[in-house]
Design a protein around this nucleic acid. Structure first.
Length: 489
RNA sequence: GGCGCGUUGGCGGAGCGGUUACGCAGAGGUCUGCAAAACCUUUCAGAUGAGUUCGACUCUCAUACGUGCCUCCA
């Protein structure tokens, strides 16, 4: 099967060809762990989880790295702002290290709730300080750096293709820029590789700047410092995956600055292409407007849970939209997604109610319905392989489920049905199988008893038994042949 | 000023060059011991104007409106 992705540099949907056959090296720009992630942040990770799943469904051996930014991410890219971690630490009266640990753990637990496949490597920026310093050293030796008062900077004018990736037009951009320009910088787009701790300050997180990286030293005191944000992704990616990787993912906001800078510093250092494919997801709006702290619409998973929505409900909501489109979150839309997932679960639960022999299955192969059901898993994989077309995949699943719902239980091909459910869980991570356990033997015997009562037209008894099942969270609906149970919503 | 994304039926929101999304809500009906479900029907679907085409909601261009990025952010 052909895998295709929209590749940012070419702005086209391209066929995916990996560096090594059937192996995929993937790098995901991870969270800055200074606060709870909001639903907009999670959109990206849900899409990248789908990316990993569809690679695996196409038999790729995936090695994925996600960094955790636990140092150096400034609140402003004018390279003057505070470090987010240090700021968060002051806010909560803790050290930056404690803040990083707390929010990293919270992030990982969120990934788990959302049913994500954990990357093979979760790399903390602070664990890769030597590699980052090595990268600065290489860039220095190649003449790409210069030192000013507050740090060591990358000279973007030395990298001729700097503007290409994001199709930047530096002069035009300047006109509308809201950034204060650091007068010591040679070019507007130059960025800090390594920042010096300001004189007289002591940071929770700081490292000694190696002497050979400093242009000149006034005295013999160590110069403390910390990495600029862009440096870590390059250093970690190259350390764990090599100089060139297959796919680098991120949000669209990363295109003009973060990824542009990653490419500049990585390719200047190695002389080879940093990543063959760049996949970027669009942003999520809430109630048609941007997510921002001041509007109070940056809901967290916890906020959704408090309102009665699970992480999986939210995952369904995200999968309903395409990653390249701007999404719009509303609680009505989330309710729709929740209902859809609930309906799907009830359909998944039908597998407990089909009692087949192999012989039955063989007989059913002949019918058109079962043929269509057999085609569904492949169709789902194809849809997602085509530039992560999850909305199309959901449509295919709805189609297949509608056929199942209309069919009588003994007309459903159990094997094909199970295969479809397994494919859905493998590619979309909705955990339909895990979330739909069989009912208890007691409940089953109540259903049998009720069926006997119905045969005897003892409606009083049958309705009483139905109420008893309802108390256990089990709804019964009678069709002309079967009595089917469902989970109460 | 530059770079993007969007505009679909009562609401939210998809796919597709020629046929149903789906969810929520309303109305009528079929079926049913009842309930539920399912199914059928229904309320101007495709911002506007051109173009390509035998044929466009789907491709191209323009216009209008909305919205995001160009400080940190997914």
């Amino acid at each position: 099967m052909t895998l295709k992705f929209h590749n940012t540099p070419t702005q086209e949907v391209e066929e995916f060809v990996s560096l090594t056959e059937k192996k995929a090296l993937v790098y995901t720009c991870g969270p800055t762990v200074y606060d709870y992630p909001h639903i907009g942040n999670w959109v990206a990770y849900i899409h990248w989880d789908t990316l990993v799943r569809i690679l695996m469904a196409n038999n790729y051996d995936v090695t994925r790295v996600m960094n955790v930014t636990d140092v150096g991410h400034l609140t402003s890219d004018a390279d003057e702002g505070e470090d987010k971690l240090e700021k968060g630490a002051r806010r909560e009266g803790k050290t930056a290290w404690e803040i990083a640990k707390f929010y990293t753990d919270d992030f990982l637990s969120g990934m788990n709730k959302l049913g994500m496949i954990e990357p093979q490597h979760i790399a903390k920026a602070t664990d890769y300080i030597p590699q980052q310093l090595d990268l600065v050293r290489t860039l220095m030796q190649r003449g790409y750096t210069y030192q000013i008062t507050d740090g060591i900077y990358y000279d973007t004018s030395k990298f001729p293709t700097y503007a290409d990736f994001a199709r930047l037009k530096p002069e035009a951009q300047k006109a509308g820029a809201r950034v204060e320009i650091n007068p010591e910088k040679k070019n507007h787009s130059d960025f800090a590789l390594w920042k010096f701790t300001p004189a007289g300050e002591k940071r929770d997180m700081e490292w000694e700047t190696p002497a050979d990286l400093l242009e000149k030293k006034a005295d013999n005191k160590p110069v403390m410092g910390f990495p600029g944000w862009h440096l870590e992704c390059s250093a970690i990616s190259m350390a764990l995956l090599g100089n060139t990787i297959d796919i680098h993912t991120g949000g669209i906001d990363h295109i003009p600055v973060h990824h542009t800078n990653e490419i500049a510093q990585s390719e200047a250092a190695t002389g080879v292409r940093f990543s063959n494919y760049w996949i970027h997801c669009n942003h999520l709006k809430v109630d048609s407007t941007k997510i921002s702290k001041s509007l109070g619409n940056g809901y967290t998973l916890k906020d959704l849970e408090d309102k009665g929505f699970s992480a999986m409900d939210y995952r369904m909501f995200v999968l309903q939209g395409h990653y390249s489109n701007e999404g719009n979150f509303t609680f009505d839309a989330l309710t729709s997604a929740k209902n859809r997932l609930h309906n799907w679960r009830n359909i998944a639960a039908l597998r407990h109610q089909i009692h087949d022999t192999l012989q039955n299955d063989r007989d059913k192969v002949a019918s058109d319905k079962t043929v269509l059901l057999y085609a569904a898993p492949q169709a789902v994989i194809e849809a997602i392989s085509n530039d992560l077309g999850t909305p199309e995949a959901l449509r295919i699943i709805d189609d297949a489920f509608a056929r199942i719902l209309r069919a009588r239980l003994d007309n459903i091909h159990r094997h094909a049905f199970l295969e479809l459910l397994e494919t859905i869980d493998a590619t979309l991570g909705l955990q339909l199988l895990d979330s739909t356990p069989d009912i208890s033997d007691e409940a089953k015997s109540i259903i049998l008893e009720r069926n006997r009562a119905r045969e005897q037209k003892d409606w009083l008894k049958s309705d009483a038994l139905r109420d008893r099942l309802l108390e256990q969270g089990i709804l019964i609906r009678d069709t002309d042949k079967d009595s089917i149970w469902e989970y109460k919503s």
